[in-house]
Write a protein that binds this DNA or RNA. Structure first.
Length: 557
RNA sequence: AGCCUCGUGGUGUAAUGGUAGCACUAAGGAUUCUGGUUCCUUCUGUCGGGGUUCGAGUCCCUGCGAGGCUGCCA
């Protein structure tokens, strides 16, 4: 699925320049998740961008957990994220790092800044700091502690490190410019006191570096050449550069920002996804309706399809929203090629083939894939009573309806022609049974007289089948922009109450023994994957995506 | 409001001063034992106004529009 021609984008242009100018020969990128939630499709995009660039330029790709805030990070997330990154195919080999590995070095660099008059310990409270910071239009003013002697700051920083102060009592700040138009340059916080155990360093540290103080230096330690991140960090770049300029770092990385990926009907906010999980609107992070990597995996998406989607979405410098149709296109395209075909009837109605012998079974061969004979064939049993799809029959069909109706002939896929001879209804007016006869001459799917049968329908023996639980999905949200809520409402008010529908269905015999994660095309219906909830007695299938249905589209008009 | 970034068909993205292209979507047609797949065709675009240039989507000015930034989050 690697694209034949990789079109240019502005990041690759920048990299081409760096290589041309000789500033970086080998390209090294990284993905720096904070372990405080599960990865979603937006992260998959970020991974795809950084990983594919490293790969295409023969460079390296690192995975680094940005664990600078012990108050919100957990080991559970570390493991889940590692699994997701691997599943997506981004190979970081043995280059798994943690910002917490660099806490010692970072501390030494903080000392270095103080010694060079470029940082100081501030005693201002958070509220006071906010007042001193100024606003978007007005400059800030210097803290009264700004010019305290370096020795004093040094001593204070050490005390902070040793736990002499409470959370929030003091902070280490860079000494830059309180009148700077970029607020990130108004003496940003470098270290803050947090008396919380860290998931990896335990109680060793009482102070933790801020993102700004940790990120660029971590990049430099790892020899990252191009630190790719999202647009909101653009405003931090001057600070990123300032720190690297003023510290004796071993390499000089460059930060390049690009726009996040947004998709219709999909939420990519860790906070909101967490809320969906914790409030039980979905069954978990890996609910097939979730836009998480694990959700897509459980839904039946392939890593290739997700990567292709991210690739096709492209890299840009402005916020954009991609159509959901592109995502569906990518998974259909991949599964069309890979998925084994099976028949399953999702909304069954019984058909009795009157001239078919009682208690007999005929077997027909069906290819596992119409275009790939290497995938083999399977045998499908035909009996006197079968199930077909309810909407493959119409009591009073229009001309263009190619399926079954009174007096109409249709082909049972892989088997024979049947002609509808009648149907019976219950008191409620529902069709409960259809009667038909089959043409013995048509066994194998055609007749000696060569007559044309336009419609082919799928079917399953009513007696020799596998009962299935099928979970059909719609969008989790009713609106393309889930955050588009009315006055006093939230994204939760846009939840689609019918996003999951559980269906009792019948599948062909060959489906028995399918394993969780196996993917199939249920012919004429869609792609389905076996859910881990399956037991040996009860198979559960998740609908990955339906097939395109131009008939349904035509009918709507 | 100040600073920064960005405006190309319906959507997403190319064109690096020289024929505005590709993909998705939509519409139509061919093929087909999946109304699927595949193949073919068609529709629709450079935010507005000036300027530089033989030539501007691209460079300059200006207007308009969109997004980001006032955590001891990342």
């Amino acid at each position: 699925m690697t694209p034949d021609e990789t079109p240019s984008n502005f990041i690759r242009d920048i990299i081409d320049e760096s290589r041309a100018s000789g500033s970086s020969e080998k390209i090294v990128t990284r993905f720096p998740p904070e372990p405080n939630g599960y990865l979603h499709i937006g992260h998959a995009f970020a991974i795809q961008v950084s990983y594919s660039i490293a790969k295409d330029y023969g460079g390296e790709f690192n995975l680094r957990f940005d664990d600078t805030n012990p108050a919100r990070e957990e080991t559970e997330y570390v493991e889940a994220i590692k699994e997701d990154v691997r599943w997506l195919g981004a190979n970081y080999e043995n280059r798994l790092y943690f910002t917490s590995d660099y806490f010692g070095q970072l501390y030494d660099w903080a000392v270095h800044l103080i010694q060079n008059g470029l940082a100081y310990v501030d005693d201002l409270s958070p509220e006071e700091m906010r007042e001193y910071r100024g606003t978007l239009t007005e400059p800030g003013k210097n803290s009264p502690f700004r010019d305290r002697p370096a020795e004093e700051s040094l001593a204070l920083l050490e005390q902070m490190k040793d736990g002499a102060f409470k959370d929030g009592e003091r902070v280490l700040r860079a000494k830059i410019d309180m009148a700077h138009p970029n607020i990130n340059m108004r003496d940003p916080v470098l270290y803050r006191i947090i008396h919380t155990e860290h998931h990896r360093t335990g109680a060793n540290w009482k102070i933790y570096p801020s993102y700004d103080f940790a990120h660029g230096q971590s990049d430099a330690i790892e020899g990252i050449t191009h630190s790719l991140c999202s647009l909101e960090f653009e405003f931090h770049r001057p600070l990123y550069d300032w720190l690297l300029d003023n510290l004796p770092v071993p390499s000089r990385p460059r930060q390049v920002e690009f726009a996040r990926l947004n998709v219709e009907y999909i939420l990519t906010s860790k906070r909101k996804l967490l809320q969906l999980v914790s409030e039980g609107h979905v069954r978990g992070w890996d609910d097939p309706r979730m836009p998480t990597v694990s959700g897509f995996r459980r839904r039946g998406y392939t890593p290739e399809s997700l990567n292709e989607f991210c690739y096709r979405a492209g890299v840009a410098k402005r916020e954009r929203v991609n159509e959901y149709a592109l995502l569906e296109y990518c998974i259909r395209k991949d599964l069309e090629e890979k998925a084994v075909r099976r028949m399953a009837v999702l909304d069954p109605v019984k058909v009795v083939i009157e001239n078919f012998p009682e208690d007999e079974t005929e077997f027909y061969d069906g290819p596992n894939h119409p275009a790939n004979p290497d995938m083999g064939t399977r045998r499908v049993p035909l009996t006197k009573e079968i199930f077909i799809e309810r909407d493959d029959f119409m009591e009073d069909p229009p001309r263009k309806f190619f399926r079954l109706g009174p007096g109409r002939e249709a082909r049972l896929r892989y088997a024979c022609y049947i002609t509808c001879t009648g149907f019976t209804k219950n008191e409620a007016g529902d069709i409960v049974e259809i009667q038909a006869t089959f043409d013995p001459e048509s066994r194998g799917g055609s007749t000696p007289d060569g007559r044309k049968v336009k419609g082919t329908i799928h079917w399953v023996s009513a007696t020799e089948n596998v009962p299935l639980e099928v979970r059909a999905y719609e969008q989790l949200f009713l609106k393309p922009n889930p955050d588009d809520a009315g006055e006093g409402q939230t994204f939760l008010d846009n939840l689609n109450s019918e996003s999951e529908k559980v269906i009792r269905a019948y599948g062909e015999l060959e489906l028995a023994g399918a394993e969780p994660g196996d993917r199939f095309q249920f012919e004429r219906k869609g792609y389905y994957t076996v859910d881990p909830d399956s037991t040996t007695e009860a198979l559960v299938f998740n609908q990955t995506v339906t097939l395109r249905d131009s008939w349904a589209k035509k009918q709507k008009k």
